[in-house]
Amino acid sequence: MPSRANLERWLRVLDLTSYYEILGVPRHASDAAIRDAFHQFGAAFHPDRHRDADDETRREISQVFRRGVEAYRVLRDPTLRARYDLDLSQGRLRLEVGGREPTSDDHSLRALCVTPAGRLYAGRADQHLERGDFLAALGALEQASDAEGENPALAERLAALRHLTTSRSS
């Protein structure tokens, strides 16, 4: 069955192909060409096109389709596409977004701190955030960060909060 063999090849090369290759468009493709290519891709891989296939095949087809969606989402957005082109030139085939999140049941900033002073100020920042007072939270978090010294997780939150407050005030 040619389809089966093709599908298996798709699955095998999925992690080895660029977004451009998945959609079958050249690097310089226009937005319209990318959209057309995605429609073509969808006509072949949308799970609705394979309602009669067995569950396993449908799951696999869906996996390919979802990767196509990932490709399309990036390539149709000029900002993401520019970032991706840069990544691609460095050999990264998928656009990296977000980092690794440490998870615990405690989502407070306080829980991120190790020094007593850091915990105190971060605790205040938590309270300000709770009330939606971003500026006061920023102030408290800056104090916490000073007290903590080297604390990448906290620094990351501080940067996020700074970004948030500046974007709100503008």
Partner: peptide, 9 residues
């Protein structure tokens, strides 16, 4: 629906 050939990475 036919599955088209996979891209060559």
């Amino acid at each position: 629906v036919e599955i088209p050939a996979a891209p060559v990475p």
